[in-house]
Measured scan of single mutants.
Amino acid sequence: KKSYVLIKVKNPKTKETHTIVVPEENLEEVLKALASQPNVKVVDIERFP
């Protein structure tokens, strides 16, 4: 059974918020990819039960 993680990201320029759902096993690479985006800020990470 896969567990999923909900990542909320915000664009500081446009103030838009997006929610991305990723499998927990991919969380680290997704966070690394997001960290390299200049106008993306991770605001929240939630685990799915």
Score class of each variant (00 low, 15 high):
Lys8Phe: 14
Gln37Asn: 13
Leu27Gly: 01
Glu29Tyr: 13
Ile7Asn: 00
Gln37Pro: 02
Ile45Ala: 02
Ala33Ser: 09
Lys8Thr: 09
Val5His: 02
Thr17Lys: 05
Lys10Thr: 11
Ala35Phe: 13
Pro23Cys: 13
Val30Thr: 08
Val43Gly: 02
Thr17His: 07
Val5Asp: 00
Lys1Gln: 10
Pro12Val: 15
Lys1Tyr: 11
His18Tyr: 15
Ile20Pro: 00
Asn39Ile: 03
Val40Lys: 04
Val9Lys: 00
Phe48Cys: 14
Ser3Ala: 13
Pro49Glu: 13
Val22Tyr: 02
Lys15Trp: 11
Arg47Gln: 05
Lys8His: 13
Glu24His: 05
Ile45His: 02
Asn11Lys: 03
Val22His: 01
Lys32Asp: 04
Leu31Arg: 01
Thr14Arg: 04
Thr14Tyr: 04
Glu29Asp: 08
Arg47Asp: 04
Leu31Lys: 01
Ser3Glu: 06
Thr17Val: 13
Lys41Thr: 12
Glu28Pro: 07
Ile45Glu: 01
Ile45Arg: 01
Asn11Leu: 05
Ser3Asn: 08
Lys8Glu: 02
Lys8Arg: 14
Val9Pro: 00
Val30Leu: 07
Val40Cys: 11
Asn39Val: 03
Glu28Val: 10
Asn39Trp: 11
Val22Phe: 03
Glu28Ala: 12
Asp44Tyr: 15
Leu34Lys: 00
Val40Pro: 02
Ala33Cys: 14
Ser36Gln: 12
Glu28Lys: 09
Pro12Asp: 14
Val22Met: 03
Val40Trp: 13
Ile7Glu: 00
Ser36Met: 14
Asn39Cys: 09
Ser36Glu: 08
Ala35Tyr: 15
His18Asp: 04
Pro49Gly: 08
Leu34Ser: 00
Lys41Gln: 13
Thr14Gln: 03
Ile7Cys: 01
Glu28Cys: 14
Glu16Met: 11
Thr19Arg: 07
Glu16Cys: 15
Ile7Arg: 00
Val43Pro: 01
Thr14Lys: 04
Pro49Asn: 07
Thr19Trp: 15
Asp44Asn: 14
Ser36Asn: 10
Glu25Arg: 05
Val22Ser: 02
Val42His: 01
Ser3Gln: 11
Asp44Gly: 14
Glu25Thr: 05
Glu16Gly: 06
Leu34Arg: 00
Ile20Tyr: 15
Val21Phe: 10
Lys41Arg: 10
Lys32Arg: 13
Asp44Met: 14
Ser36Val: 08
Pro49Asp: 13
Val9Ile: 09
Val43Cys: 06
Ser36Arg: 14
Asn26Gln: 12
Asn26Asp: 13
Pro49Arg: 06
Pro38Ser: 10
Lys41Tyr: 14
